[in-house]
Design a protein around this nucleic acid. Structure first.
Length: 515
RNA sequence: GGCCCGUUGGUCAAUCGGUUAAGACGCCUCCCUUUCACGGAGGAAUGAGGGGUUCGACUCCCCUACGGGCUACCA
């Protein structure tokens, strides 16, 4: 390849939420563009009127922005190659399709869906369960190859719906040179006469992708492996349209698979297994149903792109934590795997935990504040900022900050009483009651003073610190977690400390358990 | 069924003909910690099977098995 300007594109269909695999395709495109000083284009493939979903385009843009991989060109940011929505480029496809017909590489077909079904039924056999519209069958169908010229023009003029199909050649080898898979050879006999232009005048993916990649001067076309089987159609089209020398280099990315069973990861799997598959929350405009996204699940965008990048790619070292800048430096297509990767949510959470640990309190502050706000805990940024370093190593998801921080702001709503009762007896109640008296006399309420008071009090009794320290923690926090107890006591203040202990003693008393 | 792609521990994976086959997640044990994490030290666990090629195969070739994708006027 001559030193052609690097231009890549991410070309989603606005049909719903943005899937993990979609984000990864976008990410790899973005990284490749950044690495080579190229341009990252967003093209909206909205050629299927039936599946078009309002709001999906804006949502996709939001997801990419959240990930930090916003496109350089796209419907939101016009460049010189627009429009970037295929629905707005409709006229071009028709003219190219007609050109192909004129050159004998394509033809009109007037078959109704019913007739198509009939054909498939007729040619169906045990050895061929899904017959194709191809060299073998097209002779029996209603198309410009079987009809007279007069009939064809009459049909078209009288408004009979038609499609334009590619006329696949007989017995020709079509070689794809894939940057990841090397040479892949297809035989033209195995590919059917794909529809290029639909009856509604919209192109199918096959026509649109080559026309747009050509017109937008795409240098490298990256997409998921599911497109591999139709690559020969696209290669032929590049050739038939006379653009062979400008054809982009291809790479087909491996699929992201279900964690358990088989097959590619779908939204359903997330629902079933309890993890997100979309980048951000997606609200179906028709049903109003909300599908959880990684963002709302408490993922940091840095962690999200990090884990996605490492799903099917690595730099050859054992490094796993990368930021966007570093990824762009190190990314190469030839280090992308050939095989699909099963998605592992546990590892995904680990990535997020690493990024939370890596982030400073200042960086985390707005995010943590939001988590607390949505849980009706309102506090000053100063206080939250001071608390974050205490608990961030205990959080894997941003939402964990709620559990880890709530008891600093309010008395625990649930107290693990069974853990307290397990080894409880009267002397302990007595001790705590007396100690509360001591606490009230502490003039300087610091972690050290509280701890000293506790140790002194306990030394005068026949009790061991360990036997009381855990129950004390549970009384203050609600459960067996969190930073050192006396630090917590100090932070929540004398009043709250005393009140929480008294509350638990009351619960112990009102519900005696002598078992 | 056909075509195409793939196959290293449970999962993500390094290796690009010669290693005791890295590392990470998860799991287990221990240390640190009178909580939970973090951190630290260990452990169990891997080349789908069969043929070749080679002095030597995880690595190259073939077959089989298995997995996946596609087989729409969806992308």
């Amino acid at each position: 390849m001559a030193d052609k300007k690097i231009r890549v594109r991410f070309a989603p269909s606005p049909t719903g939420g943005l899937h993990l695999g979609g984000v990864r395709t976008a990410l790899f495109n973005y990284l490749f563009a950044k690495k080579h000083g190229g341009t990252f284009v967003l093209r909206i493939e909205d050629t299927d009127q039936g599946r078009y979903v309002k709001g999906a385009e804006e949502y996709i843009l939001n997801c990419l922005a959240w990930c930090g991989i916003s496109p350089d060109e796209g419907p939101h940011k016009q460049g010189e190659f627009g429009p970037y929505r295929q629905s707005e480029r409709k006229a071009r496809y028709l003219s190219y399709a007609k050109q192909l017909v004129q050159m004998g590489y394509a033809y009109y077909a007037f078959d109704t869906p019913e007739e198509l079904d009939l054909m498939r039924e007729k040619f169906k056999s045990s050895t061929n369960p899904s017959p194709q519209y191809n060299a073998l069958t097209r002779a029996e169908m209603k198309n410009s190859l079987t009809l007279s010229e007069d009939e064809v023009t009459k049909n078209i003029e009288s408004g009979i719906p038609y499609v334009i199909r590619i006329k696949m050649p007989r017995a020709e080898n079509i070689v794809l040179n894939d940057m990841i898979r090397g040479e892949v050879t297809f035989n033209s006999d195995e590919v059917d006469d794909k529809v290029l232009l639909k009856a509604d005048g919209m192109p199918t993916y096959h026509l649109a992708v080559v026309v747009d990649d050509y017109e937008m001067q795409i240098s490298h076309a990256f997409r998921g492996e599911e497109w591999l089987p139709s690559a020969p159609v696209h290669i032929l089209l590049w050739e038939y349209l006379g653009w062979k020398n400008q054809m982009p280099q291809w790479a087909h990315f491996p699929l992201i698979l279900k964690p358990d069973g088989k097959g590619k990861l779908s939204k359903r799997d997330g629902d079933r297994l309890g993890f997100p598959v979309y980048a951000m929350d997606w609200t179906d405009p028709k049903s109003g149903e909300i599908t959880k996204g990684f963002k709302e699940m408490g993922f940091l965008p840095e962690a999200f792109i990090n884990l996605l990048a490492l799903l099917g790619w690595n730099d050859g070292s054992s490094q796993e934590i990368f930021d966007l800048i570093e990824l762009a430096e190190k990314f190469t297509i030839d280090r992308i795997h050939k095989g699909g990767a099963k998605f592992d949510f546990e590892k995904a959470k680990w990535f997020n935990g690493e990024w939370i640990k890596k982030s400073s309190a200042v960086e985390l502050l707005p995010l943590v504040k939001k988590v607390l706000d949505t849980n009706n805990i309102n506090s000053s940024e100063e206080k939250i900022g001071a608390l974050i370093p205490l608990v961030k190593d205990r959080c894997q998801l941003l939402n964990d900050f709620y559990t880890q921080l709530a008891y600093f702001f309010q008395d625990p709503q649930e107290i693990d009483m069974s853990a307290i009762k397990a080894k409880w007896d009267e002397p302990k109640t007595t001790f705590l009651k007396e100690w509360i008296g001591d606490l009230k006399n502490i003039s300087e309420w610091t972690p050290l003073n509280v701890e000293d008071s506790f140790k002194q009090a306990i030394a005068s009794k026949q009790l061991k610190a360990g036997e009381l320290q855990l129950p004390l923690r549970i009384m203050l926090v609600g459960g067996k977690f969190g930073p050192p107890v006396f630090e917590i006591a100090s932070l929540i203040g004398k009043e709250s400390t005393v009140r929480r202990i008294e509350h638990s003693l009351m619960l112990l008393n009102s519900n005696p358990d002598h078992a």
